[in-house]
């Protein structure tokens, strides 16, 4: 495992911890999109089916369990926790799941490595992850005044994707025959979705100001 991959995974882990910190200690999920969190839960549930069939490493297994557990517990907190759920911006978080899930599933039926249940679901999870952030970005755009932890959360998620791209470039040059179009293209699309957010994030850092997206 190279340094970019490790840094990417740790950044992903940090993003989840920041979100759990906000939810668990501040008891607030204001500005967090339940739709995005539910999509991530679907992403991990469909991608990590190989937990039962293939063993890669202890690191791999532990991280998968952490991402599965955290994504489902975040959804639980926002939907069921008696205090947290009150802070959920339900009226603002209006993105429809099936607008995202359905096209991804159809795409996975068309473009996959092998036509088996596991491979189609794996491709589906990659396509879905690529666009799962959209409800969150729409919500940020609508709430405009973004609190620090929410801003950090989205920033860390974007950084994780950027580091994965560096990881693929590194692997391409260091490993023989490392070519993986489905992963690369969906990963690139996913990272590009953060470009606009990154722009305003760095602008706000430069001005020492609060992160505010334009109307």
């Amino acid at each position: 495992m190279n340094i970019f991959r490790l840094a990417g995974d740790l950044t992903h882990l940090a993003s989840v911890l920041v979100l759990l910190l906000k939810i668990h200690t501040i008891k607030s999920c204001a500005g967090i999109s339940l739709k995005t969190q539910e999509l991530y839960a679907i992403v991990f549930a469909t991608r990590y089916l190989d937990l039962f069939t293939t063993y890669i490493s202890l690191y791999n297994t532990l991280m998968k369990l952490i991402f599965l557990g955290s994504s489902f517990s975040i959804v639980w907190y926002i939907r069921k926790h008696k205090i947290v759920r009150r802070s959920y911006d339900k009226d603002q978080d209006t993105f429809r799941h099936y607008f995202i899930v359905l096209p991804c599933f159809v795409l996975a039926l068309i473009i996959h490595e092998k036509f088996t249940v596991r491979e189609v679901l794996w491709a589906f999870s990659l396509y879905l992850e690529a666009v799962a952030i959209l409800p969150q970005l729409v919500l940020l755009q609508r709430t405009r005044n973004i609190d620090n932890l929410t801003g950090q959360y989205v920033f860390l998620l974007g950084a994780y994707r950027a580091l994965y791209i560096l990881n693929w470039i590194y692997r391409y040059f260091t490993e023989p025959h490392f070519v993986h179009w489905i992963t690369w293209i969906s990963g690139l699309v996913q990272t590009l979705l953060y470009a606009d957010f990154f722009y305003y994030y760095f602008q706000s850092m430069k001005n020492n100001g609060k992160l505010q997206l334009p109307a």
């Binding site: 995974d9 992903h12 890669i56 998968k64 990881n167 025959h177 992963t183």
Partner: peptide, 10 residues
């Protein structure tokens, strides 16, 4: 194995 290379990622 190039087919499964990305499967060791999260």
């Amino acid at each position: 194995n190039p087919k499964t290379a990305a499967k060791d990622e999260l």
